[in-house]
Amino acid sequence: MNKAALKRMTRRTEFYMFIVLILLCVLVQIKSGGKLIAFPGIFTRLNVTVLRTMVVDGMFAMCSLVVMISGGFDLSFPAIAALSYSLTCTICLNNGWCQNSPVVGFLLAAAIGWVLGMLNGWIISNFKLNTMIVTLGTQTLFTGISMGLLALKEITSTLPNGFKTFGKLYILEGVDGKIRFTLSAMVIFLILLCAIVSFILNKTMFGRALYAIGGNEVSAERAGYNVRKVKFLLYSSVGALSGFVGMIRVCMESQSIPKAMVGREMTIIPAVILGGASIFGGEGTVFGTVVAVAIISLVSNSMLLLGIDTYWQQFFNGLVILVGVTVSALQAKRQKQ
Protein backbone atom coordinates (compact mmCIF):
# COMPACT_ATOMS: atom_id res chain seq x y z
CA MET A 1 0.00 0.00 0.00
CA ASN A 2 1.48 3.31 -0.96
CA LYS A 3 1.47 6.43 1.17
CA ALA A 4 -1.28 8.23 -0.71
CA ALA A 5 -3.63 5.28 -0.41
CA LEU A 6 -2.88 5.04 3.29
CA LYS A 7 -3.61 8.71 3.74
CA ARG A 8 -6.87 8.36 1.88
CA MET A 9 -7.85 5.49 4.12
CA THR A 10 -7.20 7.43 7.31
CA ARG A 11 -9.53 10.17 6.14
CA ARG A 12 -12.51 7.85 6.04
CA THR A 13 -15.01 7.45 8.86
CA GLU A 14 -15.08 3.68 8.38
CA PHE A 15 -11.45 3.45 9.33
CA TYR A 16 -12.05 5.05 12.71
CA MET A 17 -15.20 3.07 13.29
CA PHE A 18 -13.25 -0.11 12.66
CA ILE A 19 -10.69 0.92 15.26
CA VAL A 20 -13.50 1.68 17.69
CA LEU A 21 -14.96 -1.77 17.04
CA ILE A 22 -11.62 -3.45 17.70
CA LEU A 23 -11.10 -1.49 20.91
CA LEU A 24 -14.62 -2.31 22.01
CA CYS A 25 -14.04 -6.00 21.34
CA VAL A 26 -10.87 -5.92 23.42
CA LEU A 27 -12.70 -4.13 26.22
CA VAL A 28 -15.58 -6.61 26.28
CA GLN A 29 -13.20 -9.55 26.00
CA ILE A 30 -11.21 -8.37 29.02
CA LYS A 31 -14.13 -7.17 31.14
CA SER A 32 -16.14 -10.33 30.57
CA GLY A 33 -13.24 -12.61 31.22
CA GLY A 34 -12.81 -13.92 27.70
CA LYS A 35 -16.42 -14.49 26.84
CA LEU A 36 -16.40 -12.68 23.50
CA ILE A 37 -13.89 -14.74 21.55
CA ALA A 38 -12.82 -18.28 22.35
CA PHE A 39 -9.43 -19.74 21.42
CA PRO A 40 -9.12 -21.62 19.22
CA GLY A 41 -12.83 -22.15 18.53
CA ILE A 42 -13.59 -18.45 18.03
CA PHE A 43 -17.34 -18.82 18.50
CA THR A 44 -18.86 -18.24 21.92
CA ARG A 45 -22.38 -17.76 23.21
CA LEU A 46 -21.83 -14.03 23.25
CA ASN A 47 -20.52 -13.62 19.75
CA VAL A 48 -23.14 -15.82 18.13
CA THR A 49 -25.78 -13.71 19.87
CA VAL A 50 -24.13 -10.54 18.58
CA LEU A 51 -24.05 -11.99 15.06
CA ARG A 52 -27.65 -13.01 15.38
CA THR A 53 -28.68 -9.49 16.38
CA MET A 54 -26.72 -8.16 13.45
CA VAL A 55 -28.66 -10.13 10.85
CA VAL A 56 -31.88 -8.15 10.73
CA ASP A 57 -30.37 -4.78 11.66
CA GLY A 58 -27.56 -5.29 9.17
CA MET A 59 -29.90 -6.19 6.34
CA PHE A 60 -32.16 -3.23 7.05
CA ALA A 61 -29.05 -1.06 7.21
CA MET A 62 -28.26 -2.14 3.62
CA CYS A 63 -31.71 -0.89 2.56
CA SER A 64 -31.02 2.41 4.23
CA LEU A 65 -27.45 2.64 2.95
CA VAL A 66 -28.26 2.48 -0.76
CA VAL A 67 -30.94 5.13 -0.38
CA MET A 68 -28.64 7.41 1.59
CA ILE A 69 -25.87 7.07 -0.98
CA SER A 70 -28.28 8.39 -3.59
CA GLY A 71 -28.83 11.44 -1.41
CA GLY A 72 -32.23 10.35 -0.10
CA PHE A 73 -33.74 9.22 3.15
CA ASP A 74 -36.10 6.29 3.42
CA LEU A 75 -38.09 6.42 6.63
CA SER A 76 -40.67 3.96 5.34
CA PHE A 77 -38.70 0.71 5.09
CA PRO A 78 -39.71 -0.55 8.56
CA ALA A 79 -43.35 0.19 7.77
CA ILE A 80 -43.01 -1.60 4.42
CA ALA A 81 -41.43 -4.59 6.15
CA ALA A 82 -44.11 -4.67 8.83
CA LEU A 83 -47.00 -4.46 6.40
CA SER A 84 -45.40 -7.04 4.09
CA TYR A 85 -44.73 -9.67 6.72
CA SER A 86 -47.96 -9.13 8.67
CA LEU A 87 -50.02 -9.46 5.52
CA THR A 88 -47.97 -12.43 4.31
CA CYS A 89 -48.27 -14.28 7.61
CA THR A 90 -52.00 -13.61 7.79
CA ILE A 91 -52.50 -14.88 4.22
CA CYS A 92 -50.33 -17.95 4.82
CA LEU A 93 -52.12 -18.69 8.07
CA ASN A 94 -55.57 -18.35 6.55
CA ASN A 95 -54.70 -20.57 3.57
CA GLY A 96 -52.64 -23.09 5.46
CA TRP A 97 -49.55 -22.25 3.40
CA CYS A 98 -45.92 -22.56 4.36
CA GLN A 99 -46.38 -25.44 6.76
CA ASN A 100 -43.21 -27.04 5.41
CA SER A 101 -41.34 -24.61 3.19
CA PRO A 102 -41.18 -20.86 3.78
CA VAL A 103 -40.39 -20.03 0.13
CA VAL A 104 -43.89 -18.91 -0.85
CA GLY A 105 -44.01 -16.62 2.16
CA PHE A 106 -40.72 -14.97 1.28
CA LEU A 107 -41.78 -14.44 -2.32
CA LEU A 108 -45.11 -13.03 -1.24
CA ALA A 109 -43.54 -10.64 1.29
CA ALA A 110 -40.98 -9.45 -1.25
CA ALA A 111 -43.74 -8.91 -3.81
CA ILE A 112 -45.84 -6.88 -1.39
CA GLY A 113 -42.79 -4.86 -0.39
CA TRP A 114 -41.99 -4.32 -4.04
CA VAL A 115 -45.44 -2.88 -4.72
CA LEU A 116 -45.21 -0.59 -1.71
CA GLY A 117 -41.70 0.47 -2.70
CA MET A 118 -42.96 1.27 -6.18
CA LEU A 119 -45.36 3.78 -4.66
CA ASN A 120 -42.38 5.50 -2.98
CA GLY A 121 -40.40 5.36 -6.20
CA TRP A 122 -43.24 6.65 -8.31
CA ILE A 123 -43.91 9.65 -6.08
CA ILE A 124 -40.23 10.50 -5.62
CA SER A 125 -39.18 10.18 -9.25
CA ASN A 126 -42.27 11.77 -10.79
CA PHE A 127 -42.85 14.69 -8.49
CA LYS A 128 -39.23 15.25 -7.48
CA LEU A 129 -40.19 15.74 -3.85
CA ASN A 130 -38.02 15.60 -0.79
CA THR A 131 -37.55 11.91 -0.05
CA MET A 132 -37.73 12.35 3.69
CA ILE A 133 -41.15 13.99 3.47
CA VAL A 134 -42.48 11.44 0.97
CA THR A 135 -41.36 8.42 2.96
CA LEU A 136 -42.57 9.96 6.20
CA GLY A 137 -45.96 10.14 4.53
CA THR A 138 -45.91 6.63 3.11
CA GLN A 139 -44.61 5.29 6.42
CA THR A 140 -47.71 6.60 8.16
CA LEU A 141 -49.88 5.40 5.28
CA PHE A 142 -48.48 1.84 5.40
CA THR A 143 -48.76 1.66 9.17
CA GLY A 144 -52.32 2.89 8.85
CA ILE A 145 -53.10 0.20 6.30
CA SER A 146 -51.77 -2.60 8.46
CA MET A 147 -53.18 -1.41 11.79
CA GLY A 148 -56.36 0.28 10.70
CA LEU A 149 -57.59 -0.74 7.27
CA LEU A 150 -56.59 -4.41 7.43
CA ALA A 151 -56.42 -4.56 11.24
CA LEU A 152 -53.69 -7.21 11.02
CA LYS A 153 -53.21 -9.15 14.22
CA GLU A 154 -50.20 -10.50 16.02
CA ILE A 155 -49.40 -14.05 15.07
CA THR A 156 -47.23 -15.97 17.51
CA SER A 157 -47.85 -19.60 18.37
CA THR A 158 -50.03 -20.13 15.29
CA LEU A 159 -47.26 -18.95 12.96
CA PRO A 160 -46.92 -21.43 10.06
CA ASN A 161 -44.44 -24.15 10.91
CA GLY A 162 -42.36 -23.55 7.81
CA PHE A 163 -41.34 -20.14 9.17
CA LYS A 164 -40.67 -21.40 12.68
CA THR A 165 -38.39 -24.25 11.62
CA PHE A 166 -36.65 -22.11 9.02
CA GLY A 167 -35.81 -19.52 11.67
CA LYS A 168 -34.30 -22.15 13.90
CA LEU A 169 -31.84 -23.44 11.28
CA TYR A 170 -28.25 -23.12 12.30
CA ILE A 171 -24.88 -23.68 10.69
CA LEU A 172 -22.81 -24.24 13.77
CA GLU A 173 -23.48 -25.68 17.18
CA GLY A 174 -21.41 -25.46 20.31
CA VAL A 175 -21.67 -26.17 24.00
CA ASP A 176 -20.58 -23.91 26.82
CA GLY A 177 -20.76 -26.05 29.93
CA LYS A 178 -24.29 -27.34 29.74
CA ILE A 179 -25.54 -24.49 27.64
CA ARG A 180 -25.98 -25.05 23.96
CA PHE A 181 -25.42 -22.25 21.48
CA THR A 182 -25.96 -22.05 17.77
CA LEU A 183 -24.92 -19.75 14.98
CA SER A 184 -28.10 -18.93 13.12
CA ALA A 185 -28.16 -19.87 9.46
CA MET A 186 -29.72 -16.45 8.79
CA VAL A 187 -26.21 -15.01 9.04
CA ILE A 188 -25.72 -16.42 5.53
CA PHE A 189 -28.38 -14.04 4.23
CA LEU A 190 -26.60 -11.10 5.81
CA ILE A 191 -23.30 -12.08 4.24
CA LEU A 192 -24.91 -12.73 0.86
CA LEU A 193 -26.77 -9.44 0.92
CA CYS A 194 -23.64 -7.52 1.88
CA ALA A 195 -21.76 -9.14 -0.98
CA ILE A 196 -24.53 -8.37 -3.46
CA VAL A 197 -24.95 -4.76 -2.34
CA SER A 198 -21.21 -4.27 -2.39
CA PHE A 199 -21.06 -5.67 -5.91
CA ILE A 200 -23.91 -3.48 -7.10
CA LEU A 201 -22.46 -0.36 -5.53
CA ASN A 202 -18.93 -0.83 -6.79
CA LYS A 203 -19.14 -2.92 -9.91
CA THR A 204 -22.28 -1.88 -11.71
CA MET A 205 -23.18 1.32 -13.48
CA PHE A 206 -26.41 1.34 -11.46
CA GLY A 207 -24.38 1.45 -8.25
CA ARG A 208 -22.16 4.20 -9.59
CA ALA A 209 -25.34 6.03 -10.61
CA LEU A 210 -26.40 6.06 -6.96
CA TYR A 211 -23.11 7.65 -5.94
CA ALA A 212 -23.26 10.07 -8.87
CA ILE A 213 -26.82 11.15 -8.10
CA GLY A 214 -25.92 11.51 -4.44
CA GLY A 215 -22.91 13.61 -5.37
CA ASN A 216 -24.61 15.90 -7.85
CA GLU A 217 -28.01 15.10 -9.26
CA VAL A 218 -27.89 17.74 -12.02
CA SER A 219 -24.50 16.50 -13.19
CA ALA A 220 -25.73 12.91 -13.18
CA GLU A 221 -28.57 13.89 -15.45
CA ARG A 222 -26.22 15.79 -17.76
CA ALA A 223 -23.82 12.85 -17.80
CA GLY A 224 -26.59 10.77 -19.32
CA TYR A 225 -28.11 8.88 -16.41
CA ASN A 226 -31.87 8.52 -16.43
CA VAL A 227 -32.20 9.77 -12.88
CA ARG A 228 -35.94 9.15 -12.68
CA LYS A 229 -35.56 5.55 -13.75
CA VAL A 230 -32.69 4.94 -11.36
CA LYS A 231 -34.66 6.35 -8.44
CA PHE A 232 -37.76 4.34 -9.29
CA LEU A 233 -35.69 1.17 -9.51
CA LEU A 234 -33.93 2.03 -6.24
CA TYR A 235 -37.01 2.63 -4.13
CA SER A 236 -38.96 -0.32 -5.53
CA SER A 237 -36.00 -2.68 -4.97
CA VAL A 238 -35.54 -1.39 -1.44
CA GLY A 239 -39.24 -2.07 -0.87
CA ALA A 240 -38.91 -5.67 -2.06
CA LEU A 241 -35.78 -6.14 0.05
CA SER A 242 -37.53 -4.69 3.11
CA GLY A 243 -40.34 -7.21 2.71
CA PHE A 244 -37.82 -10.03 2.44
CA VAL A 245 -35.83 -8.91 5.48
CA GLY A 246 -39.06 -8.51 7.41
CA MET A 247 -39.79 -12.20 6.80
CA ILE A 248 -36.31 -13.14 8.02
CA ARG A 249 -37.13 -11.29 11.18
CA VAL A 250 -40.44 -13.11 11.54
CA CYS A 251 -38.73 -16.49 11.14
CA MET A 252 -35.96 -15.64 13.59
CA GLU A 253 -38.37 -14.40 16.24
CA SER A 254 -41.11 -16.93 15.54
CA GLN A 255 -43.66 -14.16 15.67
CA SER A 256 -45.31 -11.67 13.38
CA ILE A 257 -46.09 -8.46 15.23
CA PRO A 258 -47.48 -5.68 13.01
CA LYS A 259 -46.22 -2.86 15.18
CA ALA A 260 -42.84 -4.35 16.09
CA MET A 261 -41.05 -2.27 13.45
CA VAL A 262 -42.44 1.11 14.47
CA GLY A 263 -39.56 3.54 14.96
CA ARG A 264 -36.84 1.09 13.83
CA GLU A 265 -35.64 3.59 11.22
CA MET A 266 -34.50 5.79 14.07
CA THR A 267 -31.93 3.23 15.16
CA ILE A 268 -30.98 1.95 11.70
CA ILE A 269 -30.38 5.27 9.95
CA PRO A 270 -28.04 6.64 12.65
CA ALA A 271 -26.08 3.40 12.46
CA VAL A 272 -25.66 3.85 8.72
CA ILE A 273 -24.53 7.43 9.23
CA LEU A 274 -22.11 6.31 11.92
CA GLY A 275 -20.72 3.86 9.37
CA GLY A 276 -19.65 6.69 7.10
CA ALA A 277 -22.70 7.40 4.96
CA SER A 278 -23.23 11.10 4.42
CA ILE A 279 -26.52 12.75 5.28
CA PHE A 280 -25.98 14.79 2.12
CA GLY A 281 -25.57 11.73 -0.08
CA GLY A 282 -22.78 10.33 -2.24
CA GLU A 283 -20.82 8.66 0.54
CA GLY A 284 -21.08 5.33 2.28
CA THR A 285 -19.77 1.79 2.08
CA VAL A 286 -21.02 -1.68 2.94
CA PHE A 287 -17.97 -2.27 5.12
CA GLY A 288 -18.52 0.88 7.19
CA THR A 289 -22.18 0.08 7.66
CA VAL A 290 -21.48 -3.47 8.82
CA VAL A 291 -18.87 -2.19 11.26
CA ALA A 292 -21.33 0.33 12.71
CA VAL A 293 -24.06 -2.29 13.06
CA ALA A 294 -21.55 -4.59 14.74
CA ILE A 295 -20.64 -1.87 17.24
CA ILE A 296 -24.27 -1.27 18.11
CA SER A 297 -25.05 -5.00 18.41
CA LEU A 298 -21.99 -5.62 20.52
CA VAL A 299 -22.83 -2.80 22.89
CA SER A 300 -26.50 -3.73 23.26
CA ASN A 301 -25.64 -7.37 23.89
CA SER A 302 -22.90 -6.81 26.40
CA MET A 303 -24.37 -4.01 28.50
CA LEU A 304 -25.91 -6.31 31.07
CA LEU A 305 -22.78 -8.40 31.08
CA LEU A 306 -20.60 -5.40 31.81
CA GLY A 307 -22.96 -4.30 34.53
CA ILE A 308 -24.28 -1.25 32.72
CA ASP A 309 -27.88 -0.37 33.43
CA THR A 310 -30.24 -0.96 30.50
CA TYR A 311 -31.27 2.69 30.75
CA TRP A 312 -27.89 3.50 29.25
CA GLN A 313 -28.91 1.81 26.05
CA GLN A 314 -31.01 4.86 25.22
CA PHE A 315 -28.15 7.13 26.13
CA PHE A 316 -25.87 5.15 23.85
CA ASN A 317 -28.34 5.26 20.96
CA GLY A 318 -28.63 9.01 21.34
CA LEU A 319 -24.87 9.28 21.35
CA VAL A 320 -24.68 7.24 18.15
CA ILE A 321 -27.06 9.65 16.41
CA LEU A 322 -25.15 12.72 17.58
CA VAL A 323 -21.70 11.40 16.80
CA GLY A 324 -22.78 10.00 13.44
CA VAL A 325 -24.48 13.16 12.26
CA THR A 326 -21.70 15.41 13.52
CA VAL A 327 -19.00 13.39 11.80
CA SER A 328 -21.01 13.33 8.59
CA ALA A 329 -21.62 17.08 8.65
CA LEU A 330 -17.98 17.87 9.45
CA GLN A 331 -16.84 15.70 6.58
CA ALA A 332 -19.18 17.42 4.16
CA LYS A 333 -17.91 20.77 5.40
CA ARG A 334 -14.33 19.76 4.83
CA GLN A 335 -15.12 18.60 1.33
CA LYS A 336 -16.85 21.89 0.57
CA GLN A 337 -13.70 23.76 1.48
Binding site: R208, Y211, A212, G214, G215, N216, V218, S219, A220, R222, A223, S278, G281, G282, E283, Q335
Partner: peptide, 10 residues
Protein backbone atom coordinates in the same frame (compact mmCIF):
# COMPACT_ATOMS: atom_id res chain seq x y z
CA UNK B 1 -21.10 24.35 -17.46
CA UNK B 2 -20.19 26.94 -14.88
CA UNK B 3 -20.63 24.37 -12.11
CA UNK B 4 -18.46 21.99 -14.19
CA UNK B 5 -20.97 19.11 -13.77
CA UNK B 6 -18.59 17.15 -11.63
CA UNK B 7 -19.19 14.66 -8.85
CA UNK B 8 -17.27 15.89 -5.79
CA UNK B 9 -17.68 12.56 -4.01
CA UNK B 10 -16.17 10.44 -6.78
Amino acid sequence: YQDLSIFPNL
